[in-house]
Amino acid sequence: MTTASFRQRHASQSAGDAGEHLLSIGQSVRLKSAIGNTTGQTQVYRITGMMPASAGAPQYRIRNAEENHERVALQDELELVDTAGLNAKATLMERTFGHGQGTKA
């Protein structure tokens, strides 16, 4: 194997490092830009899936509890939300499925 063929063979591996997923499924995030946000409020999304990189940038499926669909966002468009203080006293079931808001008797 020549040096040139070694570089060609391993070039895709080193290029893939730039497309590494830094976020995990289940983490809470918000979109950095407010494009399409007509309410002026920042919405919190939960990562529901990881997708292959597009143009070298990792992609994620995200979902907001108030929407009936998922969105796809690039890693560069997302920022982590600190929910430690918000959900510190909530149980795992409440953090996962909400607090049952709409089921009050």
Rank of each mutant, 00 (worst) to 15 (best):
T2P: 13
S5H: 01
S5E: 10
S5D: 04
F6L: 09
F6T: 15
Q8D: 07
R9T: 11
H10L: 05
A11S: 10
S12T: 13
G16W: 15
G16Y: 14
D17S: 08
A18N: 02
A18L: 11
A18Y: 05
G19D: 01
G19N: 07
G19L: 01
E20P: 01
E20A: 06
H21G: 05
H21P: 00
L22T: 07
L22F: 09
L22P: 00
L23Q: 00
S24V: 00
I25E: 00
G26R: 04
S28F: 08
S28V: 08
R30D: 01
R30I: 01
L31Q: 03
L31Y: 05
L31K: 02
L31P: 07
K32T: 03
S33F: 12
G36H: 03
T38C: 15
T38M: 09
T38N: 11
T42P: 02
T42N: 03
Y45C: 07
R46M: 14
R46K: 12
R46Q: 07
R46V: 04
I47M: 04
T48G: 10
G49E: 13
G49Q: 07
M50K: 11
M51I: 13
M51E: 05
M51A: 09
P52V: 06
P52M: 11
P52W: 02
P52D: 08
A53Y: 09
S54T: 07
S54W: 04
S54Q: 13
A57H: 13
Q59D: 04
Y60G: 07
R61E: 13
R61S: 15
I62S: 00
R63A: 02
R63Y: 13
N64E: 05
A65H: 15
A65W: 15
E66L: 09
E66M: 15
E67I: 08
N68L: 13
H69C: 06
E70Q: 11
E70M: 01
E70D: 02
E70V: 03
R71P: 11
R71S: 11
V72F: 04
V72G: 06
L74R: 09
Q75M: 03
E77P: 00
E79R: 03
E79P: 02
V81M: 06
D82K: 00
T83A: 04
T83H: 05
A84M: 08
A84Q: 10
G85W: 07
L86G: 02
N87H: 10
A88F: 12
A88L: 11
A88E: 15
K89A: 07
K89G: 06
K89R: 09
A90F: 08
A90N: 13
A90Q: 14
A90K: 10
A90M: 09
T91F: 06
E94Q: 12
E94H: 15
E94T: 05
T96V: 15
F97Y: 14
G98F: 11
G98P: 01
G98H: 11
G98Q: 08
H99T: 02
H99A: 06
G100W: 13
G100Q: 15
Q101H: 09
G102A: 14
T103D: 05
K104I: 14
K104N: 11
A105Y: 10
A105K: 04
